[in-house]
Nucleic acid binder design. Structure first.
Length: 722
DNA sequence: CACTCCATAT
């Protein structure tokens, strides 16, 4: 069978014009391969053969190689000189041309062991594990005896399979062949078992090693770190430091940092940073990437950025670490900005970059920037990437346009469970629970199996829409799918029960949980207690929360609101004192709105905007209209009795309303206003906005920290429960 | 021979 030869755009003669190989060839005058005589030589074949053999040494680009391949085929040389096939094979392997190498291997009558090894290594290195194993199998079937270099890539391929079955067979094979003393093979075994999740096996082999080099230690450490055992990884690293004089190299430290990243221990992580510097490895690109990632992931974006900035031309992965670090830690605009800088510098993003940039847009909440990124992704080579599409669905939902999210969804040919879950979650965010349920049912009809995240989406959709009975039913259907409910699921049910006013039942439900309730669960109870003014239970839930998460200001505010709703002012004051004692400060309320592709941010009584005079005129007009139609501030008495904290709350209302006023004067009548805020919607503001939507005949879409509120004709999509 | 960045979750 002839190997596939790519179509040539230019005539073959152009090869002879390609300067470097030919010039080199003339200068060095390579001798022809002596012992092989052409069987039926075409014209001047000896010259061609010598040139071809030499050219292969210089084939530095796939296009060179395929042209040489074409010459050899069309001239008949390949058929006459089998040695050229082997040479062609090695060149293809060196250039990572897997397909080409694979075809050539089949053409070679009796490949040597190094040739087999090269073929296995090539496939293994590129993740073509099944192919690598297939080639190994074929080698054995031809009676070829593998050497010590054959097995490490075979083991690597076994490690890429989900089950250790094949790996065990190869292990047995190794013992039979007597390779068990080869350190490289041993290291390969350790890594293989660790990757298949067989950590005890990996450790057993590692422990029995009489001689351990840096790769042995690295294999077991990274095996643990990469497979969900960060603590074991760190424990072994400690043993490496104390009981051996093997110096960790950059790869070992990358894995150690990854383990600290997983347990989010930045303190220890930065002490490893110290070690990195001490060992003089701080310019090692992979370590810079991992260090940047750990700082960014733990919220130290400035430190991460300073590492990033020290690198003159960062690799794509480093850009990714920085961009996703920004996106995940509330620095969405920096993430988008950095992504733009990357494009401006003509650095080609990969699919991870694009996904991180889309995530940043989702956090940013700007529909305009969101459309821009979709356009960008649509023109990239990742336009059909299901991961990219999934994040677009999430992004559009979080940017307030469920219609856009649905459009992306519709265009995905083979929707997997994550795609469905993302849209279900999106409908839930917008309070459209019925549609979320319909989607869920459609998904089941499409024979896609829901997972635990699907149920988080579905139950939170029921929660946001107040579909109590449906939520209860779906919660209990989880077990039919063999899904064990987790905290988020319990939290949704607690919320649903409490919403229906069944606080006692909700508490009973919390007590019946098979695990220790976490903040989300108590938080749901606390929220409901605020709605129903249930002081006793609210206080209890708050105490549990404070024990678990003492520095989150939102919880203190909730408790304070419960006291306020029933007029317990002295307790409100006590909460304030408690906050001061613990050094907890409330996040400053901030509302954003986007006009003509530009984001405008408004804070407490903000007068910094260039058009603030017009804005405040509009605001006064709105206040008057509200008063005229009988609007009474809901928490008037609260404001009267409280100082700092509630004042802030009231100012936050202003911030939101300033954004509305600004939107009204900046857009054509009837345009939907879109506003994002960093806190949850507050009662006073919420009822005012409902009325405003009616008074000015506008649809107002507000994204708070938890969900969307669609205000229209005096009503809100949340049904006044959030 | 060993390694880093990654979509869906209150």
């Amino acid at each position: 069978m002839a190997p596939a030869v790519p179509a040539l755009r230019r005539p073959i003669v152009s090869l002879h014009r390609t300067p470097p190989p030919l010039q080199n060839l003339r200068r060095h005058s390579f001798s022809p391969i002596p012992h092989e005589e052409p069987c039926d030589p075409p014209n001047s074949s000896a010259t061609l053969l010598s040139r071809a053999a030499a050219l292969l040494n210089f084939a530095a680009q796939p296009s060179h190689l395929s042209q040489i391949h074409a010459i050899l085929l069309s001239s008949g040389l390949l058929r006459c000189f089998p040695s050229l096939s082997a040479k062609l094979f090695s060149s293809s392997a060196d250039l990572d041309l897997i397909q080409e190498a694979r075809h050539l291997l089949d053409e070679i009558p009796r490949p040597s062991v190094p040739l087999w090894n090269a073929a296995i290594r090539l496939h293994s290195r590129h993740g073509a594990f099944a192919d690598a194993l297939h080639i190994y199998d074929k080698m054995l079937h031809q009676g070829v005896v593998p050497d010590g270099l054959s097995l490490p890539p075979v083991l690597k391929a076994c490690g890429g399979l989900p089950a250790p079955t094949v790996g065990r067979a190869v292990h047995a094979h190794i013992l039979r062949r007597g390779f068990e003393t080869d350190l490289f093979v041993q290291n390969g075994l350790v890594a293989m078992y660790a990757k298949c999740g067989q950590i005890p096996c990996a450790r057993a082999i590692f422990d029995r090693l009489s001689d351990r080099n840096v790769v042995s230690w690295t294999s077991i450490i990274s095996g643990c770190a990469q497979n969900g055992f960060p603590l074991e990884a760190l424990q072994i690293f400690a043993r490496m430091r104390s009981s051996s004089d093997v110096r960790p190299d950059f790869i070992a430290l990358v894995s150690v940092l990854k383990a600290y990243m997983d347990i989010e221990d930045l303190d220890q992580g930065s002490s490893v940073h110290g070690l990195v510097i001490k060992l003089g490895l701080d310019d090692e690109p992979d370590l810079v990437i991992t260090l940047t990632a750990i700082y960014a992931k733990c919220g130290q974006v400035r430190t991460a950025r300073s590492l990033f900035d020290r690198v003159p031309s960062p690799a794509v992965i480093l850009w990714n670490a920085m961009i996703s670090g920004y996106a995940k830690n509330g620095h969405a605009s920096e993430a988008v900005e950095l992504f733009r800088e990357m494009i401006a510098r003509h650095i080609k993003p990969d699919s991870v970059t694009i996904r991180s940039a889309i995530l940043a847009c989702a956090q940013l909440g700007s529909l305009e920037v969101g459309k821009w990124i979709e356009d960008y992704a649509g023109h990239s080579q990742f336009k059909d990437d299901i991961f990219v599409k999934t994040s677009l669905i999430d992004m559009y939902a979080k940017c307030g346009s469920i219609a856009h999210a649905h459009r992306v969804f519709e265009c995905i040919p083979n929707k997997d469970v994550v795609v469905w879950s993302a849209l279900i979650m999106g409908y839930g965010l917008h309070g459209r629970g019925r549609e979320a349920i319909r989607l869920f049912e459609e998904m089941k009809c499409a024979r896609v199996r829901p997972n635990d995240v699907t149920f988080v989406g579905l139950l939170s959709a029921c929660k946001h829409a107040g579909l109590v009975d449906e939520g209860w039913k779906y919660f209990h259907s989880m077990r039919h799918y063999g899904i064990e409910p987790r905290h988020q699921h319990y939290a949704c049910v607690v919320d649903l029960l409490a919403r229906a006013g069944r606080l006692e039942k909700a508490y009973e439900f919390v007590r019946s949980m098979p695990m220790e309730p976490e903040v989300t669960v108590w938080g749901a109870l606390l929220n409901a207690c605020k709605i129903y003014g249930h002081v006793g239970l609210g206080r209890y839930a708050a105490e549990r929360i404070f024990a678990l998460e003492p520095s989150n200001a939102g919880h203190y505010v909730q408790l304070s609101n419960i006291y306020a709703s029933v007029g317990m002012w002295s307790d409100v004051a006590k909460v304030r004192v408690l906050m001061k004692e613990k050094g907890v400060t409330k996040a400053i309320g901030c509302s954003l709105t986007e006009i003509d592709g530009k984001l405008h941010s408004f804070r407490a009584g903000d007068k910094s905007h260039p058009r603030y005079k017009e804005i405040f005129e509009k605001l006064a007009e709105l206040e008057m209209k509200l008063k005229k139609s009988g609007f009474v501030p809901h928490m008037g008495s609260v404001l009267h009795d409280l100082s700092m904290e509630e004042k802030e709350e009231s100012l936050c209302n202003h911030g939101e309303r300033i954004a509305i006023a600004f939107g009204l004067i900046s857009t054509a009548p009837g345009t939907t206003l879109r506003i994002m805020k960093n806190l949850r919607a507050c009662v006073n503001c919420h009822s005012a906005t409902k009325l405003i939507s009616k008074l000015v005949g506008r649809e107002i879409v507000i994204r708070d920290i938890n969900r969307f509120h669609h205000f229209k004709d005096g009503l809100c999509s949340c049904g006044d429960y959030w």
